[in-house]
């Protein structure tokens, strides 16, 4: 190895030793990492479109690969502790926008009340991505294939948007308006995700089809949530939400009409699958053709209904 230049082995200087806690407050020009929401909103109102909000960065740094220099100002939300909390408030679950996929996946409350969301988070990317990527980032990025979006719609999520002028709460369904497009204004921050606590006999199923088990951008996503009546047989309400089949995550409302008030035992799963297939108009892209997506949509709808059926039968009330 004599051909290697001197100085290459100097990495020794930084090796070994014990980790101590290192705390510094953050500068400075071009990069802001405030500790409070109000400060963040203040910075946002000052810079508007001239600043980029960064949460986990797992989409943003991919998008700006090799041209990060185009971004002059960063607003990093990493120090705002209240955005990292998952808590129950009366009959609502409040999830901070900076909650990571790992947090979602490992939260017992999320697992209990929103298993579809929990599983969706567990299926995102890889450990490295789940440790950084956040629910808020996933929502604001608004990819048609965003893993958490269909489950959030299926659980009737609402988003809290704040600016230093006012705050508003919008249903998930109204938030997404196109691929990577939302109603969020440059001076607004998505701060919290609000989910109603589900009724007791609520069942859910999560199906994601992708090319691999890890690091797959979904070819098609189904989040199915069914609320049963007291008898655990009669369908009270249902949400059939799909991803990667339209410019935004969508709900197939026709399924609601078809299932509401019916006895689950007497449902025609194939017919319901067919409704899903008929009501979507996906495009051909690198991950799958329109035809493939329509075929698969039907099949996964049938599978999801079967899974919910067996979960329902296993539960004794």
């Amino acid at each position: 190895m004599e051909e290697f230049p001197q100085g290459l082995q100097n990495s020794k200087d930084f090796s070994g030793g014990d980790s101590k806690k290192c705390q510094r407050t953050v500068p400075c020009q071009g990069y802001f990492a405030p500790q409070r929401i109000e400060e963040a909103l203040e910075i946002l109102s000052r810079y508007g479109k001239e600043i980029k909000i960064i949460a986990g960065g797992t989409d943003l740094l991919v998008q700006y690969y090799d041209r990060l220099y185009e971004i002059n100002n960063w607003l990093d939300l990493k120090n705002i502790k209240e955005l990292k909390e998952v808590k129950i408030n009366k009959n609502q679950m409040i999830i901070g926008a900076m909650v990571t996929h790992t947090q979602l996946e490992s939260s017992e409350d999320i697992k209990t009340y929103y298993p579809v969301l929990s599983q969706a988070a567990a299926d995102i990317g890889s450990p490295q991505i789940r440790n950084r990527g956040t629910i808020g980032g996933n929502i604001v990025n608004a990819s048609p294939a965003g893993d958490l979006l269909s489950p959030l719609m299926a659980y009737d999520a609402q988003f809290k948007l704040q600016s230093n002028q006012r705050e508003m709460i919008v249903p998930a369904e109204e938030f997404f308006i196109g691929p990577k497009k939302t109603i969020l204004q440059p001076n607004q921050l998505l701060t919290r995700i609000i989910l109603p606590l589900p009724e007791e006999k609520t069942y859910g199923c999560w199906i994601k089809i992708g090319k691999r088990k890890a690091l797959a951008i979904a070819t098609i996503i189904l989040a199915l949530v069914v609320k049963m009546a007291e008898d655990n047989k009669t369908v009270k309400d249902v949400r059939t939400c799909l991803g990667s089949v339209a410019p935004t995550p969508i709900e197939i409302k026709e399924v609601r009409k078809k299932m509401a008030g019916k006895n689950f035992n007497q449902l025609d799963f194939a017919e319901l699958g067919q409704i899903v297939e008929d009501k979507i108009s996906p495009i051909d892209d690198i991950r799958g053709t329109r035809e493939y997506r329509k075929d698969v949509a039907k099949e996964i709808m049938i599978n999801a209904l079967e899974e919910i059926d067996s979960a329902r039968r296993e539960r004794n009330y």
Partner: peptide, 23 residues
């Protein structure tokens, strides 16, 4: 936490404790 350092801004590591393979 296990992270991909290609998806993190250097500035985001301010105040952090980091271990690389050399550690």
């Amino acid at each position: 936490e296990l992270v991909a350092s290609c998806l993190i801004l250097a500035t985001q590591s301010d105040g952090a404790v980091i271990t690389t393979i050399e550690g």
